[in-house]
Nucleic acid binder design. Structure first.
Lengths: 376, 376
DNA sequence: TTGAAAGCGATACCAC
DNA sequence: GTGGTATCGCTTTCAA
């Protein structure tokens, strides 16, 4: 059990770590272009050109240079290169975190993973700024003035998000993860189809015979929340069911809120039989509320969650879980990153990508039984 | 409901966005030191010194310079500064993601959030590399040779992690998030006390009368998994209960694994009455398995989860949830970041921080009832 | 207290 | 095909 393989070291040795180590132990810093060219008896110009694949270098020299670079573990200094080229070869992400509850939306991890994949394939670094949502301007200002990124991915857009005209005016290329309704100017975005996802989910619950379906949504200045509510309402309207304000909630997406809401709704008169929840975290609270009342998930109450194209809930044998899978968030990250790179490099590409959620529908035990809940 | 405030724009205006916009619209790039000094009729040297708080600048000049900088939205170019000083003012995080299951451990978000907080307070940028775990060497190599970070936070250490001697040899300052048992040389780390957390959790379940407690652990080349198992075993040993290998599992921490394991264990002979789970994600699968069998959480089966100092499960009225809270992950991030900065800046600080998990014990309904499960 | 000038490590223009 | 050199924007000696 403790017989661990050490692939990392091996990989390094296969690479050029020994050379780097030797150099560092010799007290020297990492090798510079000047040193390398000195060693080769060539000019910096030629070495640089050889390494960067310029055509006017003879094949012989190129080979010689490449070999020497590998041997000595040479890699160009990013800072110097950035200064010389004017491109930072880095992309900034601003991750807003709520200052009200200490929590980071777990989907960011997946989105970032997808984006990171594309970045590293294209030689870009990823610069992260995690900032309290009441201090977000500082992060943008910093990116703008310090000029250490070539582009930005904008997360968690609100309705008519003020950052969009701002970034437009500043001329910093950006792609929005999500959309911003009522925006005045065009902008590039990658989004999942929140409306259709919630419409389908609501339809699904209605098909199962649910009549009183709770919508537990995010705060409605967030764009996604608006769209999700629209989907929910559209499904009801299609069956001529008037939306009941008593069943629609918008708030911070915390576990506690989901829990408290669920307990109070299930304990009240005319309890709902299903919950449609915007956030995985909130859904966990809903689930806990259901459990605490001694009810059985999917027999007594149904729960559907959808978290920005994410869920940890998988489709079970008889659990009506309906949700998108996490892999599609990662895909959104990849798509957004590629779009931004294309824009920055002046390629002509689609500036709008609407992803349908990668949905999974479970089999259900059927309509929820009428609940009888003892309060307390 | 649609009456949205626009604090961001305002904040920007309060800052110096207008100046930046004006400058950019004029076709100019962001202001440089040279331009600013030209405007002021001062040398670059003086302006630089004034801005960087050198003592030999007269108070009058300093004020004048500061005002002009603010007015014109000047901020030093990070790349140039990095090149000149030799410090990148950036810290790298390598986030390994499993190539087997498409999933990012959600705790990273919180750790990153805590670290990011400290970085921005200290003027550091955060550079993220999300890399498949079978290709991690590339990320380190890149950091090392490109020299675009001054230090590294090492995540997810294994037993006797080969990256530790490597980074030591390379002389790049680093702090490990977690520990690496059997490491040959000292290293700086911030870790939660996984052993005591799992020992306490097991104790708690034993106190409730549980005899057959399943341990659902992560892969045991990960250091944390070893320590968690040690805690579990220590609690059993203290009551002279021999650990039952049939109840101990180590594997990829996926939802599906938790689910499948739970279903097969609960359907088998002599089913367990409690689960102690190393990962929130896996715990969700366990929960689903329990639900699918029509069992009621905490009455029929108890579940305790602990995910690297994190849980979304909160302490409920009668649910035996025992776990650390998410805020402590964030705190670990803060502590690790501060430690690294201190090390990089040559301050003398503790190089080892062991955090006790911020645990919450719930009230329980008591010992789990003996289960009768219909297979299928 | 201020300024001139030499780097930092690359790229890229212009000769040869 | 190859090399010299200005340049990117800043910090930092060294002089004044």
């Amino acid at each position: 059990m403790l017989n661990i393989k050490l692939p990392l070291t091996q990989a390094f040795v296969v690479g050029n770590v020994k050379a780097i180590q030797t150099a560092l132990k010799a007290g020297a810093d990492a090798m510079t272009l000047k040193e390398l060219s000195g060693l080769l008896g060539l000019s910096q110009t030629t070495v640089s050109r050889a390494l960067n694949g310029y055509p006017e270098v003879s094949e012989a020299t190129r080979k010689r240079v490449a070999a020497a670079a590998r041997e000595h573990g040479y890699a160009p200094n990013t800072r110097a290169r950035a200064l010389a080229t004017g491109r930072a070869m880095a992309i900034g992400h601003v991750i807003p975190i709520s200052s009200k509850h200490e929590m980071v939306n777990p989907v960011f991890g997946d989105f970032i993973a997808g984006a990171g994949e594309v970045y590293s394939r294209n030689g870009y670094d990823m610069l992260l700024s995690v900032v309290p949502d009441d201090d977000e301007d500082a992060a943008y200002r910093s990116f703008l003035t310090k000029r250490n990124v070539d582009g930005i991915i904008l997360h968690a857009p609100t309705l008519n998000d003020p950052r969009i005209p701002l970034l437009n005016a500043l001329g910093l290329p950006f792609v929005v993860h999500g959309r911003s309704s009522d925006a005045q100017a065009p902008y590039a975005w990658v989004d999942v189809n929140n409306k259709s996802a919630f419409q389908r989910a609501t339809d699904f619950l209605l098909d199962l015979g649910h009549a009183r379906i709770v919508l537990v949504n995010g705060l409605e200045h967030m764009d996604f929340a608006i769209r999700r509510r629209a989907g929910y309402e559209a499904a009801l309207k299609a069956r001529a069911i008037p939306p009941d304000p008593a069943l629609m909630f918008a708030g911070e997406m915390t576990e506690a809120q989901g829990h408290d809401l669920t307990r109070s709704l299930l304990a009240g008169p005319n309890p709902p039989t299903a919950f449609l929840v915007s956030s995985m975290i909130t859904a966990m609270g809903v689930r806990r509320g259901i459990e605490e009342l001694g009810l059985t998930m999917s027999r007594d109450v149904s729960l559907i969650t959808h978290d920005d194209d994410l869920s940890y809930f998988r489709n079970g044998a008889d659990i009506p879980v309906y949700t998108a899978t996490r892999s599609s968030v990662r895909d959104a990250g990849r798509k957004a990153a590629q779009m931004l790179i294309d824009i920055m490099q002046g390629r002509d590409t689609a500036h709008e990508i609407l992803l349908e959620a990668d949905l999974t529908l479970g089999q259900s035990t059927g309509p929820a039984a009428r609940l009888k809940v003892e309060t307390g």
